[in-house]
Simulated assay, not measured.
Amino acid sequence: MSVQQFRLPDVGEGLTEAEIVTWRVAPGDPVRLNDVLVDIETAKAVVELPSPYAGVVDRLLAEEGQTVDVGSPIIAIRTAGDGPAAPAADEPAAATPAGDEPAVERT
């Protein structure tokens, strides 16, 4: 089993950030490929982001109301597979680079 991080994609030409409006999932929730994970708001529209992975939500990496840069990880999903694994929620993570937000777990 591995943990895959989904990074905020560029959902429009030249957009550099988006706000997390509503999480549709919580840690522990099962997700299938293309299930809606989150609603984000850009300068142009509110957009639903589908899951690029099937698995179980490991942790949310951004809070509702938070503005996130394109390319920043927003969610971690445990998947069945042999790919490289990110640290599990209960494992210590590597040092966070300056300016990066720590992981946020929703209750």
Rank of each mutant, 00 (worst) to 15 (best):
W23D: 02
I20A: 02
V3D: 05
M1E: 13
L37P: 06
T107C: 01
V47G: 03
D35H: 05
A26P: 00
A98I: 04
E64V: 00
S2E: 14
E101V: 06
S51M: 05
P87V: 09
E19C: 01
E64P: 12
G65R: 11
G81K: 13
Q66E: 15
A45P: 13
Y53K: 05
A62K: 10
P92Y: 12
D29H: 06
V3E: 11
V36L: 02
P97I: 03
E101C: 01
E105W: 00
L33M: 11
E63H: 08
D90C: 03
T22V: 07
S72Y: 08
T96C: 02
Y53S: 11
F6H: 12
G99W: 10
P9V: 11
R59Q: 14
L60K: 02
E101H: 12
G83K: 09
E63L: 01
V11C: 10
Y53R: 07
P97H: 06
R78E: 14
P9I: 08
E63Y: 00
V68H: 11
E101W: 14
Q66H: 07
S72R: 15
V56D: 10
D58I: 04
D35W: 07
G28N: 05
E105S: 10
L33G: 00
A76G: 15
Y53F: 15
D29W: 06
A103N: 03
R106C: 00
R7C: 14
V47I: 14
A85Y: 06
D90S: 11
D10A: 10
T16Q: 13
A62H: 01
V36S: 10
P27H: 06
K44R: 13
P50I: 04
R24N: 08
P97Y: 00
L8A: 11
A88Y: 10
P87H: 13
K44Y: 04
G65M: 08
L33Y: 11
P52G: 08
A18L: 06
I77C: 13
V36I: 01
Y53T: 08
D39L: 12
G99N: 06
I75Y: 05
P9Q: 15
D90L: 05
D90M: 01
S51P: 09
V31P: 02
A88W: 15
V11R: 05
R59C: 06
E64G: 08
A85R: 15
L33C: 00
K44V: 06
Q4F: 15
T16P: 00
K44E: 02
F6L: 15
D10Q: 15
K44C: 09
F6V: 15
W23C: 06
A89S: 12
A95H: 12
E91W: 04
T16K: 14
V21H: 11
